[in-house]
């Protein structure tokens, strides 16, 4: 099997949209992996943040199907440490937003169990709705 990788970012519509929405320039990333080493949730991600950025830059298929950006809660640990000053949580949020626009909400609030709703602090639900629904 062969795959064409295009370094030409003009042709990479997803990358352009992510950069526009996040305000981050992903060409700056030199793949040091600090974000992945820092992330408290990297074990639950199906692709660590640095590789997600790499696949995005190469225009590889399947980025929007990943779980990684739904796992990120925006704790900003990676953003504080990134030597290239990339705010990775903004990249993650841009991917969530694009996925929601294309496929709809990830969280069906009307289907949450009553017991969950009874006990949750309101901030948990507000934050989850803001990150998982359009």
């Amino acid at each position: 099997m062969s795959m064409t990788i295009r370094a030409d970012s003009q042709a990479n519509e997803l990358l352009q949209t992510v950069e526009a929405l996040s305000g981050q320039r992903l060409a700056a990333c030199y793949q040091c992996g600090t974000c992945a080493a820092t992330c408290p949730f990297v074990a639950a991600m199906d692709l660590p943040p640095d590789r997600l950025i790499q696949q995005l830059r190469f225009g590889l298929p399947g980025v929007l199907e990943r779980r990684a950006f739904w796992v990120c809660v925006g704790c900003d640990s990676c953003a504080e440490r990134c030597p290239r000053a990339i705010a990775v949580p903004r990249v993650m949020e841009a991917l969530r937003l694009i996925a929601i626009r294309e496929r709809g909400d990830r969280l069906a609030v009307a289907q949450l169990p009553a017991a969950t709703l009874r006990d949750l602090p309101p901030i948990a639900l507000v934050a989850s709705l803001r990150r998982n629904t359009g």
């Binding site: 609030v109 009553a114 709705l129």
Partner: peptide
């Protein structure tokens, strides 16, 4: 209007009671 049916007699007023019946208000 679609709401989860509720039995007023069975409701115990708690901080999350309205949120429980109308979770979309968190949006």
């Amino acid at each position: 209007l679609l709401t989860r049916p509720y039995d007023l007699h069975a409701i115990v007023p708690q901080p999350n009671t309205l949120l429980q019946h109308f979770p979309e208000i968190a949006g």
